[in-house]
Simulated scan of single mutants.
Amino acid sequence: MSGTSDLKPDYASQHEPLPEYTPPRSGLLAHIPASWVPFGELSRIDKPTGIYLFFFPHLFGTLYETACNPKWVYTPSHLLHKNAILLVGTIFFRAAACAWNDNMDCEYDRQVLRCRLRPIARRAITPSQGHLFTALMTVLALLCLYVLPKVCWAISVPSIAILVLYPFAKRFTDYPQVILGVQVSMGLFMGMGAINPTLFEDLERMFTNKDEEKVLAIVSLYMANICWTIVYDTVYAQQDIEDDARAGVRSMAVRFQGSTRTLLYVVSLLQVTLLVACGYWQDFGRGYMVMACGGTITSLGVMNTTIDISKPSECLWWFKNGCWFVGLSMSLGLCLEGLGLR
């Protein structure tokens, strides 16, 4: 296909002709059969940052449940086993989410420079093949779910429902990042349930006993994860802000264009405040406060003060690397609490 054949005339007329698609020449996709490459691209297996971002809330959930219940004996091998299952399930679940998203967004993708050569957008995969691939990845994810406690099955139902909704959110709201955050952050409860089969009973007991502080701690950590999703996905969306606005794709990056940095500062501060509140209500020690809260505010503070949000390359760098700064800070803070290093 030609470099501009799939684009709207008004878009093509404002841009230089684009190069043809070229198969990957390095990385994982360069070493698989050519007929598999479009499906590998559809799953984003060569772009693992999304896997990490999907997985981190699950990890937080396992570590939080351990930190809150020091009387329980969780061996390192037990935690590693549960997190390994959650990670494998996340890989398949994220692949299903990407395939579903690309199928629903293919007409928009053809109008966005960075996305126009995605496999469905460039017609290397048909929509029907995309749906079949989505179904296959979903089944594989559910097989991982099958070996987890039944409480995880119940948590997966609203999670999948919200993920199905997400691609359409960009049509009817300027805040699709919030909807994505609600879905991704449900991994927190999935992680908690993975090591605590009686999670629902424990939550019910908290409400019955009016143990508001423990409930507020969980809610705060969940909302902090939503804030983090808003931050990193808004930074990610900055790469396509002009094309998205032209194509009619709605997002917080488009909605707050011109004041995005202020938005990032506010949401980052809210995230750290919620992390502090979680630690306060759960009576966590200095290890959590210094590492999880201090590490997060330092990471986000450096990002917000140094990033040039007008440069897609900087936005992509912070999206790919910022997940480690924040994710590891929160993980290590919860680990310190779980080890009793207060």
Rank of each mutant, 00 (worst) to 15 (best):
67 A>T: 05
68 C>P: 03
69 N>S: 10
70 P>C: 08
73 V>S: 15
73 V>L: 12
74 Y>Q: 08
75 T>W: 15
75 T>A: 14
78 H>W: 14
78 H>K: 13
79 L>A: 10
80 L>F: 13
80 L>H: 10
81 H>F: 09
84 A>V: 13
85 I>K: 10
85 I>M: 13
88 V>I: 12
88 V>R: 05
90 T>M: 06
90 T>L: 07
91 I>V: 14
95 A>V: 02
97 A>Q: 09
97 A>F: 11
98 C>S: 03
98 C>V: 11
99 A>D: 06
99 A>H: 02
101 N>A: 08
102 D>T: 04
102 D>W: 07
103 N>L: 12
103 N>S: 12
103 N>F: 00
104 M>F: 11
104 M>C: 15
106 C>Y: 14
107 E>H: 13
107 E>T: 14
107 E>K: 14
108 Y>Q: 11
109 D>A: 10
111 Q>V: 08
111 Q>A: 01
112 V>G: 01
112 V>W: 03
115 C>S: 14
115 C>G: 05
115 C>D: 06
116 R>Q: 09
117 L>T: 09
118 R>D: 03
118 R>G: 01
119 P>M: 06
120 I>K: 02
121 A>V: 09
122 R>W: 04
123 R>P: 10
123 R>N: 14
123 R>L: 10
123 R>G: 15
124 A>H: 10
126 T>G: 07
127 P>M: 07
127 P>L: 04
127 P>S: 08
130 G>T: 02
135 A>Y: 02
136 L>D: 02
136 L>C: 11
139 V>T: 06
140 L>E: 01
140 L>F: 06
141 A>H: 06
142 L>R: 02
142 L>C: 11
143 L>P: 05
143 L>R: 07
144 C>E: 07
146 Y>M: 08
147 V>A: 13
149 P>D: 03
149 P>I: 03
151 V>S: 01
153 W>V: 00
154 A>D: 10
155 I>P: 00
156 S>R: 03
156 S>W: 00
156 S>V: 08
158 P>S: 02
159 S>M: 07
161 A>L: 15
162 I>G: 01
162 I>T: 05
162 I>D: 00
162 I>V: 11
163 L>V: 15
163 L>C: 12
164 V>I: 15
164 V>M: 10
164 V>P: 07
165 L>P: 04
165 L>K: 06
166 Y>H: 12
166 Y>S: 14
166 Y>Q: 11
167 P>S: 06
168 F>S: 15
169 A>R: 04
171 R>M: 13
173 T>P: 03
174 D>Q: 10
174 D>A: 13
175 Y>I: 15
176 P>V: 08
176 P>K: 03
176 P>F: 04
178 V>S: 12
178 V>L: 15
179 I>S: 04
180 L>N: 04
180 L>D: 02
